[in-house]
Design a protein around this nucleic acid. Structure first.
Lengths: 151, 151
DNA sequence: TGTCTATCGTCAGTCTTGCTGACGATCAGC
DNA sequence: GCTGATCGTCAGCAAGACTGACGATAGACA
């Protein structure tokens, strides 16, 4: 991705939701990559860890559903985390078709530290909006995802 | 892309800016594809047309810069639009290394009609926010792109 | 009990999107 | 008129995600 063009007032591009979302997201992805680089995980991998860490162990498919990724994509995600010793797969006792995926102690530890870095990065990213507007912004995004999705 | 997971209150995922932006953008991309399908152009192709239509003819590279795409990507974009008879390349008189790209009458016409459809789609997309919040949302996005980018 | 269908994890293949590196043509400075 | 930069093009590569198929397992039902 290349830097967006020079700024122009009310603009044929910055009037487009698609353009705005895409480029804002691209900038966040960059910041995120920079912030997580010391931990050796991508933003998505961290999200996987976060989902796995939030409650009881869940199956691969369940995790994929929570994250909104395809189950075939989840295979590779878990592969990589397992290779790094951050998660463990084991066959479910209740349903032996399922892989239950759980954090290892290393995984727990990395999750905690990387989440802290992510939160710092997000605060910095939203800083130009000011606190009140930043909070509102996140709320509106959430609203679009929930209300829009269930229409 | 798969539908995001079930809604849960304050959430390890919907607290993530990355997750929110990515999925909101994905939903918009779907809506956009649906809205533009009758016109046979993608959202990005329409953005190209819009940039080309907004002022004097510009070079391919200049257009790429405005759009924030790589110049090699621009080749393919213009290729496709030219094949469909929506734009015309010609060698610049001033600098014969440059391709000046201009809308054809067909291109102008399609631009007008498709832009109308896009605006309708965006209004519907933002509808859950209400008018005032929708406007604010766009303003905040613009702010993030501009202020963040120049830091 | 045995059969039939659905589910889960996996893999191979494919498509899309974007980038890198190289090339020829052209320009601009000297 | 050289020399180094710029522009458009192309081929090749890499990441991300999806499709379709497969084997293993589970659950329903006769």
């Amino acid at each position: 991705m290349v830097e967006p063009g020079e700024r122009v007032g009310a603009d044929v591009l910055t009037d487009r939701l698609g353009y705005l979302l895409k480029h804002v997201q691209a900038r966040l992805a960059e910041e995120s990559a920079r912030a997580l680089e010391p931990f050796g995980v991508s933003g998505r991998e961290l999200a996987v860890l976060a989902v796995l860490g939030e409650s009881r162990p869940i199956s691969q498919l369940e995790g994929a559903g929570r994250l909104g990724v395809d189950r075939t994509t989840m295979v590779g995600l878990v592969d990589r985390l397992e290779r790094r010793g951050l998660v463990e797969r084991r066959r479910s006792e209740q349903d032996r078709r399922k892989n239950v995926v759980a954090l290892t102690p290393d995984g727990e530890d990395l999750l905690r530290r990387a989440e802290e870095a992510r939160r710092r990065m997000e605060r910095a990213f939203l800083e130009p909006l000011g606190d009140a507007e930043a909070e509102r912004f996140v709320r509106l995004l959430r609203l679009l995802l929930n209300d829009g999705g269930s229409r």
